Amino acid sequence: MEKSNDLRITKTKRLLKEALLALLTKMDFEAITIKKLTMHAQINRSTFYAHFYDKYDLLEKTMNEELIAFVEEVAPKSEEELVLADIPNPFYLRATQYIYQHGEFFKVMMGENGIPSFQQQFLKIIEEYMLNHLEKYHPSPNRMEIPKELFIHYVANGYVGVISYWLENDMQYSSEYMAEKLSQMTIKGPFSVAGLK
């Protein structure tokens, strides 16, 4: 009986999260109501409130679950992976593969009616990866030509910007292609890969 209840709870939560994503493709989050969510998920209001406090709770838990799964999947598996010498970089490859596999979620969260707080949290994950790389492998981090914070923000925002473009254009390139090009731009620099000296 417990297993049956657990499966029912899991199904209900999944239906509500799918309803949230579906509605976000059509309207801003502020326009979404509990009534719209429950109608789309085909459940009653009392069932919604048995699992979530309000729509903000649903949104936060949906984002957190996806970001936790993303981090667990793409986090460097060894210290060697933090070295940016390999093209494509293994971190970038796992990241683009994960985003490709969960494309609908990322398109919604980073799209026209997307959630700015999700984008900020996603950006922070990339910044932390870059910071770990610098702290472990830069020979003299205190002697950089620019403050490391500027470097980290430049690379991380560039990465997220390219991923946003990829999503907006229906991921027309493969995840492997994206990982390779992102790695080249990060390692060699944008002007170098563009053929500008």
Rank of each mutant, 00 (worst) to 15 (best):
M178I: 06
Q121E: 15
M63D: 05
I115T: 14
D170T: 05
G111C: 04
P90A: 09
M39I: 03
M27P: 00
I115P: 15
L7V: 12
F29W: 08
K197E: 12
M63G: 03
N5G: 06
H102E: 03
F29K: 08
M63F: 02
H102T: 01
D57G: 10
K26F: 03
I87Y: 06
R45C: 01
Q120F: 08
M63C: 06
F48W: 10
A50W: 02
A75K: 13
M144V: 07
S192F: 13
K181E: 15
T10N: 13
M178P: 04
S175G: 01
G111N: 07
N5Q: 13
E128H: 11
K55S: 09
K124L: 09
T96M: 15
M185I: 12
E66V: 06
G111P: 00
A95Q: 12
T47C: 09
F122D: 02
M110D: 08
A41F: 06
H138D: 14
L123R: 04
Q184I: 04
F70L: 14
I87A: 05
L23I: 06
I87D: 07
A31C: 05
F122E: 01
L150R: 12
L58N: 12
T12Y: 05
M63Y: 02
K136Y: 05
E65C: 01
V162K: 11
D54S: 09
K197L: 12
F105S: 10
R94G: 13
F191W: 04
K36Q: 14
L23K: 03
E2R: 11
F191Q: 15
L182K: 07
F105R: 04
S4M: 05
P88H: 11
N44H: 13
E127A: 07
L84H: 11
A69L: 08
F70H: 07
M130L: 06
F52L: 06
V193N: 10
S140A: 11
A31P: 00
L24K: 14
I34G: 00
T10W: 03
S183L: 05
I187T: 09
Y173P: 00
E73F: 01
L82K: 11
A69Y: 01
L15T: 02
A41S: 09
K17C: 12
K181F: 12
E180L: 02
I187K: 15
D86L: 06
V71R: 02
M109A: 05
I68T: 13
Q120T: 02
